[in-house]
Design a protein around this nucleic acid. Sequence first.
DNA 1: GAAACATATGAACATATATTCAGATGAAAT
DNA 2: ATTTCATCTGAATATATGTTCATATGTTTC
Lengths: 119, 119
Amino acid sequence: MAKDKIDVCSVEAVDFEKVERVRQELPPGTEVQAMAEIFKALGDPTRLNIILALAREELCVCDLTALADVSASAISHQLRVLRGLKLVKYRKQGKMVYYSLDDRHIEQVIAAVQEHVNE
Amino acid sequence: MAKDKIDVCSVEAVDFEKVERVRQELPPGTEVQAMAEIFKALGDPTRLNIILALAREELCVCDLTALADVSASAISHQLRVLRGLKLVKYRKQGKMVYYSLDDRHIEQVIAAVQEHVNE
DNA sequence: GAAACATATGAACATATATTCAGATGAAAT
DNA sequence: ATTTCATCTGAATATATGTTCATATGTTTC
């Protein structure tokens, strides 16, 4: 990352020890990036609605379209994103494709954020 | 929201009862929106790094600049977003401004996502 | 086999967003 | 008071992103 961060502020302004200590406690950059991608996925109302709905029941694309109030195409695009992040899984049955959550942590994540919002 | 979602797919394709049941269990739209905003805030690597750092220790803007490896201006812009969402609070001491987390739920949220990433 | 339907995909477009740059503010030091 | 410094702010820009539209794929039904 940065090699010369000592000159970002004047030397005496930064608590250099503290910065180094915190830096070592931070997750590696790739992990932060991966976490940010998950959060970004949940940061879109359409995708969040999909996740919230699937947290209740398995649903087909058509049902999700009815729930999220956007076009089936938009839902499909967003489901691809969620699939790519291993947040949802699917099961084909004839023409229909049924989606469900593929992660046991996500519900805790959502519950915690919901608490924050409802404080 | 939608009043005529019965025609999104052909009538027999959607499990209408199921959709209605799930719809009633979903949080109200404003709450979903608020949750999405929190997730979106955590979805940017710069902001996530700020949050992760502040989860360890109180830090001034200058320290955060050194840690996140972007300009002080960029940090300041992002801190404003986090302030607006009540995710961080600050304390002035002379020229310096010290930031810290302002939410007890966020650490659980991050821990859960971290588990998902490290599975 | 053709038609109807659920879902997926690619291109296009319009909007949102993160950073940089230049300059403003306010506090400490000289 | 003037300079220095930490932080903030607004405008500008480049990029990312979500939706729509048109079309493709695969499955069922007739």
